[in-house]
Design a binder for these strands. Structure first.
Length: 282
DNA sequence: TGAATTGTTATCGT
DNA sequence: AACGATAACAATTC
């Protein structure tokens, strides 16, 4: 399930191959995946040149010289594969094809058909619907603190909300909360400044590490990453915490499997001993 | 056979 | 009434 680091890895690999290329043909083999519809996407795409290939949240964004942008969301199982490099597995799940003026054809393969190909005439509207980019300079501890302050949701579903912060999925959310020592059920507005600082550093830390390792491999869907060897809690239910040895718990939060170390991530803030008050009572 | 996966949407409750 | 929680949904693999 590609998240920010996996999408970033895909974008970086594809960028030199797609930049400046003109799309000469587009076909979809699964009309429902085209937004708003296949006709609009094809009309916008065919004949257009790609002037930039970037990432916004978990979207791959191809800016077009004729205006607007082509967006691809991989969702659960989307992958790109060049026609001449396709595996038999890819070939079974081709949902859309892009032919370029280079003569090569790029397949969008997607076993579960959740992926989306979107034409956005106004990228500003897309942008406005998405939360802050955690790796941009504007994402500071102070900004995160402000965003959290007036939210009463539990941390885990809030961090997964793409309109709140862009790019985190189940894996990196669990890893970030562990790295910050915060329980996924903690309420957003109950963090103290030090909690916020640790969460900010943890989010950026796990995402950067993910990108450095080309993302996390997830069975056949995304085989190229190495980040899975560095996961501290995700997928480790019942195994000992690498930091304290306690058994990692697997729970369900907002219909998502959630992994937590009960000792490193207490449900309430760490029990700090207030010595002045103890002294006063004695 | 059912559990697991993502993000959006609809619905219900506070 | 706005926000939060919850369930359903799309489709497939192991």
């Amino acid at each position: 399930m590609p998240e920010l680091p996996e999408v970033e890895t895909v974008v970086r690999r594809l960028r030199p191959q797609l930049l400046g290329r003109r799309i000469v043909a587009f076909e979809t083999r699964w009309a429902r995946n085209c937004t708003p519809n296949p006709q609009v996407v094809r009309t916008a795409a065919v004949g257009a040149r790609i002037t930039a290939l970037t990432r916004r949240a978990k979207y791959i964004v191809a800016a077009l010289d004729r205006g607007g942008a082509l967006l691809v969301h991989l969702r659960m199982s989307g992958r790109f594969a060049w026609q001449d490099e396709c595996t038999p597995g890819d070939l079974r799940h081709v949902r859309a094809t892009f032919e370029f003026d280079s003569g090569r054809t790029l397949y969008f393969c997607d076993a579960r058909k959740f992926g989306r190909v979107v034409f956005a005439a106004d990228m500003g509207a897309v942008d406005a619907a998405l939360g802050i980019e955690p790796l941009e300079r504007s994402f500071t501890p102070a900004v995160l603190g402000e965003l959290l302050r007036d939210r009463r949701r539990r941390l885990k579903p809030l961090l997964l909300d793409q309109a709140f912060i862009a790019g985190l999925g189940n894996i990196y959310t669990d890893e970030a909360l562990f790295a910050a020592g915060l329980h996924p059920l903690r309420r957003a507005d109950r963090l103290d400044p030090d909690d916020v600082r640790r969460l900010h550093a943890a989010i950026r830390g796990v995402l950067k590490k993910g990108i450095r390792h080309n993302g996390t491999s997830i069975d056949w869907i995304y085989p190229e990453g190495r980040m899975q060897r560095h996961l501290r809690v995700y997928g480790r239910g019942g195994e000992p915490c690498r930091r304290c040895g306690a058994a990692i718990q697997r729970l369900r939060v907002g219909q998502r499997s959630t992994h937590v170390c009960p000792r490193c991530q207490p449900r309430r803030g760490p029990a700090r001993i207030d010595r002045t008050r103890l002294a006063g009572r004695a």
